[in-house]
Amino acid sequence: MVAATEARDTATTELARQGRTLLPALPALVFLFLAFVLPVWVLFLRSFTEPATGLGNYQSLVTDSVYLDVLVNTFFVATAVTISTLLLAFPIAWFLVIVPSRVARMVFAVILLSMWTNLLVRTYAWLVLLQDTGAINQFLMYLGLTSAPVPLVNNMVGVIIGMTYIMLPFIVLPIHATMSTLDPALMQAASIAGAKARTIFFRILLPLTLPGISAGCIMVFVMSLGYYITPALLGGVRDMMIAQLVAELIQKFLNWGLGSAAAFILLFITLAIYFAYVRLVGLVRPT
């Protein structure tokens, strides 16, 4: 951690020292300005000016119960996805640390391969698996656990399952990175000192893995807040998330003002969470 911060500092000073050589980056900066900064700025202005000048759009978003539901939904899904990915990722990361490196490389390959596969394809694959006549429901009915298909898709359950799967690599990787720097002898030392497995987990392994856990959680949570495709395909009409709302408002209703305001609420929340995280963990210093 300290080393990373130091490395960053060195990099920053290096950059400052070579300030004049930023020239080669100019084309990219111009592109970013034209394609990103300018449109965002325009949208930002429109959120205050359409249809009428003022804070009207923001006011209706935080007071109208339809929009409030979307906000609550968004946070609920992001939280649930963060928790479920964390519960799955921790054992996976641990497994990757303790297995021989040959096995670990194979598992990593599977994780990366799934990340590189087209998002739509993966989401439709879940649709196939989760639908009433899908493999999962047929298996459950074959086992006799249920007589009628369990609704697994077009609802919150489907969204959470699909997003958990898609977000998993983003939390496994940082947790694994932290865990692999731990000396296994620490766990042995705790064990010979009399600590039972439970104590070793809660007193040694968990606190020492916390930097990776928090980095992974913030990543998954923030990415989930603005997720679009998976909730749109696997969710029901009533499970709308904020990104869908933005798309709906702008594409269907051409309400640029309200749509922009919704997008900026999402952006503000994301930035607030990011800065709170930086404040608390201090891993990344905004410079």
Partner: peptide, 20 residues
């Protein structure tokens, strides 16, 4: 018997103090 129940002390080659 598992290590935690052996009542043996051990000092390792690497410093295995808990950093936190």
């Amino acid at each position: 018997v598992i290590p935690s129940r052996r009542n043996i002390g051990m000092v390792f080659q690497r410093y295995t103090l808990f950093p936190h």
